[in-house]
Amino acid sequence: MNFLDFEKPIAELEGKIEELRHLANGGDLNIAEEVAKLQGKVDKLMRATYGKLTPWQKTQVARHPDRPHGLDYIDGLIDEFMPLAGDRAFADDKAIIGGLGRFRGRSVVAIAQEKGRDTDSRIRHNFGMAKPEGYRKAQRLMSLADRFGLPLLTFIDTAGAYPGIDAEARGQAEAIARAIEAGLDLRVPFVATVIGEGGSGGAIALATGNAVLMLEHAIYSVISPEGCASILWRSGDQAKEAAEALKLTAQDLHRLGVIDAIVPEPLGGAHRGPAQTIGAVGDAIARALDGLEGVEGGLLRAKRREKFLEMGRAAGA
């Protein structure tokens, strides 16, 4: 388990429990009570810590290396998944994985951003930062969903679209713009879930859903706190202040009317209970789909457009 800075006291207690258990294996039986006491302390501490995470702490949790990633949601929620590759123009971008499958029985198109877990897979998935071909693949899969009347489920987790020479040369901006347009044009139910980091244009490209869900400790922002700090504070050190100011937490976004529902995470964050988290996300998606299925396609599109047309109009913190 990787521990974050602010989790140090928790880590220490858990270390002690681990030690005691080790001793217990050696034959001392009076240890169970002690372990239970310590575990109680851990739970209390965890509740206290996770009950009031600051925006900057949430940013760290959202980026936690052990947090379930896009492919984990596809594995956990999509049966018979058939990955479909390529943008039919240039390449297959593995920062965005998509394909056909079944979500709780119904055929769907699922698209997920994947950051990778170890050095090899991180490089293969380009750290979850898609290039134009990734967004063009997403557009292609969106029109596939539209053509066959399949709901679209997206799982968002990216630091942002890839900033590089090749990405610019192939039209990163245009690819994102068209993905936004394609998502808004769909005549099928579209449920987007921000599972980790919703990084700017690279995230909204896949997040123009009828319903936008967000995990309790996920973040979604126009710019990373570090990027914002380096521009507005002229120093990356003020990332903490920037995270506060940007209002990037699920709770803030819900208040601002940008997202529709918050999916609770297990105590201590999604990485402490991946299966439970993925199940909760599945339940929330199912609830959202229930309200959308059976609605006529044109109306789904009109309602989605109406919703995004109102964004910010009545806002006031």
Binding site: I180, G201, I204, L232, L246, L253, L309, M311
Partner: peptide, 18 residues
């Protein structure tokens, strides 16, 4: 996007597209 309007400025990307 105008950073000082946070997520609401990001949402203008979808809004202007509509």
């Amino acid at each position: 996007a105008r950073m000082q309007e946070g997520i609401l400025s990001l949402m203008q990307m979808a809004r202007s597209t509509v």
